[in-house]
Design a protein around this nucleic acid. Structure first.
Length: 554
RNA sequence: GGGCUUGUGGCUUAGCCAGGAUAGAGCGCCGGGCUUCUAACCCGGAUGUCGGGGGUUCGAAUCCCUCCAGGCCCGCCA
């Protein structure tokens, strides 16, 4: 209803002013919608903005399209306020399941996220990628797009060759109950320590890289075994986080199927391509002074070459290609885009996020300096279990454990997604373990409260008579959900959903505090129950978009 | 050194791309509220040179320039 009303008002102002795309914004504290068009017209009409606003408002009052909207002015501002009709239509939509779903779109999206190197467990930096990516994927699906989520498996890089060297040269048996990714990390860290002691080992690592690229069966098998073991660990962690990939795409496939050779052959036709032992692209015309190297002088390809092949494949099979990458990939990402443009292929849209570091400094898998996602989830779950147990001694242990798992993931996902991606952060245990305001559990709690009321209410007839300030504020916020979702996918900014959900919970809690639902009667009771149902649905949809379980009780 | 990016109350942060009406929140602090629909809650209070300076504009946290501080990048790594 918000989107439609916005459009109606925008068109009315356009007609009244002759401006094609007049300014219209959310009215914030002053109104539901507001326009500053009078400022724009002041110069050409040679009148004061205040006078112009009054004249436009006069015209708008005659517009039958705005008969349900109150038009007023405050000085130069033209304000628009909706009424009962808007609330009735909003709530009647919001009490139906799937509220916020936008009409189906034909634009197919491929979204790549996480894609961490399989040389150790996902840590708290990687899962920022996961959570941003998974939330975006969920948002696009809710916005009506077919989405395929991919994990690009870097299964033939130097890091993996080091892991393989470790597996073949060091004592590398897994420990009792050790998860695959943690096992691989242990071997990787040990191998790096050896290399530090004896740099001669690098030659052996190089040989592994050459042999895997040649397709030497035994080497390929060694790589695949190590990578698979790590990936199995990733899958478990990702599942705990409620993040799902539709497909794992193996980098080496683009060597084996010839795509990488083909893209290099195509690039050789370009004048920007240079060969002097190695093969590289001169992107200086696009503003890059660094050479973009695709093939080493020993004939093996560099990551960038395989990535080009991968992106060409994605671009040809999907309408939009979206990658979620760390800020450290900004340069290489721009080079990738520039090169794809050179070839006339579809470049990706890249969502970059800044680094998560530890209080003591940057994380490093190689040095073993990181907080793994598994540790984080375990610790937050423990804490959540204690909380649930303290509050709900009426529930059995199984139920408490299930709630704790959901609460923990809510806390983690929300804590990460609520921050704008361009902000670098320092991991903080205290914040991760906070379940109070501006947290995922806080929003879950509002949902559980709504469920509790509805569970006790029994059947009721939908009604739409709201008059209290807290009721109206809540209903009007519910109306904004589809608009927020639209903005979120348009700008590729999932944290907008996070902010919205929190505000919705805030408004519901205020309503809850001041307006009794079950103890009210007749039309008021039905109206409040309708509002609670609409809130519950909207909270649920928003939480699900954030990958957070909408718990009925907690 | 060059490029990208961030800088908003003690701490964390929204708003910035698409400039407008008293800069929103949370934590922490102070003071209130559970015989009442789940207090993981709510209400009130104190706390701000929106990093500094200059400019554009009727109007700048928002756009431009410059300086300062932090982060990232500048590999025949990924």
């Amino acid at each position: 209803m918000y989107l439609e009303t916005f459009e109606t008002i925008r068109k009315a102002i356009a007609t009244a002013t002759g401006r094609e795309n007049p300014p219209l914004t959310d009215g914030g504290a002053h109104a539901d919608f507001a326009s500053t068009v009078a400022f724009d017209l002041a110069k050409e009409r040679k009148k004061s903005p205040v006078q112009i606003a009054a004249e436009i408002a006069e015209t708008l009052l005659q517009d039958p399209a705005l008969r349900n909207i109150r038009v007023s002015t405050t000085g130069p501002y033209i304000n628009f306020n909706t009424g009962g009709d808007f609330i009735r239509q909003t709530l009647s939509r919001a009490i139906r399941p799937g509220y916020g779903n936008l009409p189906a779109q034909p634009v197919r999206i491929v979204l790549e996220h996480t894609s961490a190197n399989p040389n150790g467990p996902l840590h708290v930096g990687h899962i920022r990628n996961t959570i941003i990516g998974d939330t975006l994927a969920r948002s696009f699906r809710k916005a009506g797009h077919p989405v395929e989520v991919q994990y690009y498996v870097n299964d033939m890089g130097r890091q993996i060759a080091i892991v393989v060297w470790g597996f073949t040269h060091l004592d590398s048996a897994p420990r009792e109950g050790e998860k695959g990714d943690h096992h691989v990390a242990r071997v990787y860290i040990a191998a790096n320590r050896e290399i530090e002691r004896d740099p001669g080992i690098v030659a052996g690592v190089d040989r592994f890289m050459q042999k895997v690229e040649e397709g030497d069966a035994e080497t390929v098998s060694l790589f695949r075994t190590a990578v698979s073991e790590c990936l199995d660990g990733f899958r478990e962690t990702l599942a705990r986080l409620n993040a799902r990939h539709d497909r794992f795409v193996w980098e080496s496939d683009f060597i084996r199927n010839g795509d990488t050779s083909r893209v290099i052959a195509r690039l050789k036709q370009q004048e920007e391509c240079h060969e002097d032992g190695r093969l590289w692209i001169d992107l200086s015309a696009a503003g890059f002074e660094k050479e973009y190297v695709l093939r080493r002088s020993d004939g093996t390809t560099v990551y960038a070459a395989r990535d080009l092949a991968y992106h060409i494949w994605k671009g040809r099979n999907f309408d939009r290609v979206i990658d979620v990458l760390g800020a450290d990939h900004k340069l290489i990402g721009s080079q990738l885009i520039a090169t794809l443009k050179l070839l006339g292929e579809q470049p990706p849209e890249i969502v970059h996020f800044e680094f998560v570091s530890l209080p003591e400094g940057a994380m490093s898998t190689r040095a073993g300096k990181f907080v793994s996602a598994d540790e984080l989830i375990d610790e937050v779950t423990r804490r959540a279990y204690d909380e649930v147990t303290a509050r709900r001694d009426d529930l059995d242990e199984g139920a408490r454990r299930a709630i704790a798992r959901s609460v923990a993931i809510a806390a983690i996902r929300y804590d990460i997604v609520k921050i704008s991606p361009e902000k670098s952060t320092v991991f903080d245990w205290e914040e991760a373990l906070d379940f109070e305001r501006q947290s995922g559990p806080y929003i879950q709690y509002a949902h559980a409260r709504a469920c509790s009321i509805l569970g006790k209410a029994g059947d009721f007839e939908p009604a739409f008579s709201l008059s209290m300030e807290s009721e109206i504020a809540l209903a009007k916020h519910i109306a904004k959900f589809p608009w927020v979702l639209t903005n979120s996918v348009r700008d590729l900014r999932p944290h907008l959903i996070a902010t919205y959900a929190r505000e919705l919970a805030d408004l519901f809690n205020v309503f809850y505090q001041f307006e009794p639902v079950l103890k009210s009667e007749g039309e008021i009771r039905n109206s409040r129950l309708t509002l609670v149902l609409a809130t519950k649905n909207t909270l649920r949809e928003a939480l699900e978009t954030l990958g957070i379980d909408a718990l009925a009780t907690m």
